[in-house]
Amino acid sequence: MTDRPDPADIAHRIDQRRRQLGLSEGMLAHRAAMSPAYLRQLLCSGPEFDPPGFVRVTAVLGMTWPELLSGRRPDAPPGQTDAEPRAGLRRLTEPQCWELLGTRGIGRIGLPGSSSPLVLPVNYVVDARTIAYRTAPGGAAAPDEGTPVSFEVDHIDEHRRQGWSVLVLGEAHHVDTPEEERHLSALPGAAPWAGGPRPLWVRVRPAGVTGRRVQAG
């Protein structure tokens, strides 16, 4: 049974490579389509927390997955770290981002926390260039009105080292009219994971939408 990689070692390799390339933490986070706070959460938690997020980080840094985990590919000769094709990132346009968001149904809502962001999976619908999801009032995924949030959706094939990621930054607003609730409930994929008899609909109104496509180089 192999030991799990130490998140501190991985964070150190990422930091070293970032400095080599002359990238600030903010620049790395932006190019990997995530917020700086979310990047710090990744580095503290390790790859098991969000493997697609780490795939995007390695693509930005020009690293391979084995390089990230152990410093070099296990079957490569000593000192050789580029024995497999590297991945590259291509920026997506905003229309492409919305098109991809509409193909999925599960994403991650990022909420402010006391010491680090709280990231929770939710099922969602796209409605008029907004993201909406249903949850239990007062629950962990129910932010206060006007809370700044992030919403991320990924589709990554780690074996082929390709896929895409879309990040939405904006504010959360409560849906409080019966007409809006009926409209959202009628959309395909709107069946909630949680919510109870009177669920809360949360609508994320974007301030910015960015996306990246990961492709093996």
Results as ranks from 00 to 15, higher is better:
residue 138 G to M: 07
residue 100 L to W: 02
residue 119 V to T: 04
residue 189 G to S: 08
residue 151 F to N: 07
residue 110 G to L: 06
residue 101 L to R: 01
residue 127 D to M: 02
residue 198 R to W: 14
residue 159 H to M: 07
residue 138 G to C: 07
residue 173 H to T: 13
residue 165 S to R: 15
residue 195 G to E: 11
residue 127 D to T: 12
residue 184 L to E: 03
residue 192 P to W: 09
residue 160 R to W: 14
residue 157 D to N: 10
residue 111 L to Y: 02
residue 118 L to D: 10
residue 190 A to T: 14
residue 137 P to I: 12
residue 139 G to N: 05
residue 150 S to L: 10
residue 182 R to A: 14
residue 98 W to S: 02
residue 115 S to L: 05
residue 108 R to P: 00
residue 193 W to G: 14
residue 195 G to I: 09
residue 105 G to T: 06
residue 132 A to E: 06
residue 96 Q to M: 02
residue 109 I to N: 01
residue 181 E to F: 05
residue 109 I to L: 03
residue 150 S to P: 09
residue 113 G to H: 01
residue 182 R to C: 05
residue 131 I to L: 05
residue 189 G to C: 07
residue 183 H to L: 11
residue 94 E to S: 00
residue 159 H to L: 13
residue 193 W to Y: 13
residue 192 P to I: 11
residue 176 D to M: 09
residue 183 H to V: 11
residue 123 N to W: 02
residue 150 S to R: 11
residue 186 A to G: 12
residue 124 Y to E: 08
residue 141 A to Q: 11
residue 118 L to S: 08
residue 190 A to F: 13
residue 142 A to W: 14
residue 94 E to T: 12
residue 135 T to W: 09
residue 155 H to V: 14
residue 106 I to H: 02
residue 135 T to K: 08
residue 181 E to Y: 05
residue 158 E to W: 06
residue 146 G to W: 04
residue 107 G to D: 00
residue 180 E to C: 15
residue 174 H to F: 07
residue 138 G to H: 12
residue 144 D to I: 07
residue 187 L to I: 04
residue 187 L to Y: 03
residue 125 V to F: 03
residue 115 S to R: 09
residue 94 E to L: 01
residue 131 I to H: 02
residue 132 A to N: 10
residue 155 H to C: 12
residue 157 D to T: 06
residue 155 H to D: 15
residue 117 P to F: 01
residue 118 L to I: 15
residue 189 G to L: 11
residue 185 S to L: 02
residue 167 L to Y: 10
residue 99 E to F: 00
residue 126 V to S: 01
residue 134 R to N: 04
residue 163 G to P: 12
residue 97 C to D: 03
residue 104 R to L: 02
residue 136 A to Y: 09
residue 173 H to N: 11
residue 170 G to Q: 12
residue 172 A to P: 09
residue 116 S to K: 00
residue 186 A to K: 08
residue 114 S to N: 06
residue 95 P to F: 07
residue 152 E to A: 13
residue 126 V to D: 00
residue 147 T to I: 09
residue 192 P to A: 13
residue 156 I to E: 07
residue 181 E to S: 14
residue 177 T to P: 05
residue 94 E to F: 04
residue 175 V to D: 06
residue 151 F to E: 03
residue 159 H to R: 14
residue 166 V to I: 12
residue 148 P to H: 08
residue 152 E to V: 15
residue 99 E to I: 00
residue 194 A to N: 09
residue 129 R to C: 12
residue 194 A to Q: 14
residue 128 A to V: 12
residue 107 G to F: 00
residue 148 P to C: 12
residue 115 S to F: 05
residue 127 D to C: 06
residue 158 E to I: 08
residue 120 L to A: 02
residue 103 T to W: 01
residue 108 R to A: 07
residue 188 P to S: 10
residue 169 L to Q: 13
residue 111 L to N: 01
residue 118 L to F: 04
residue 162 Q to V: 07
residue 173 H to Q: 13
residue 114 S to T: 14
residue 170 G to P: 10
residue 153 V to P: 03
residue 146 G to R: 05
residue 121 P to H: 01
residue 118 L to Y: 04
residue 114 S to F: 05
residue 132 A to Q: 10
residue 141 A to I: 06
residue 125 V to C: 02
residue 142 A to H: 15
residue 98 W to K: 00
residue 189 G to I: 13
residue 127 D to G: 02
residue 165 S to G: 14
residue 196 G to F: 07
residue 97 C to R: 05
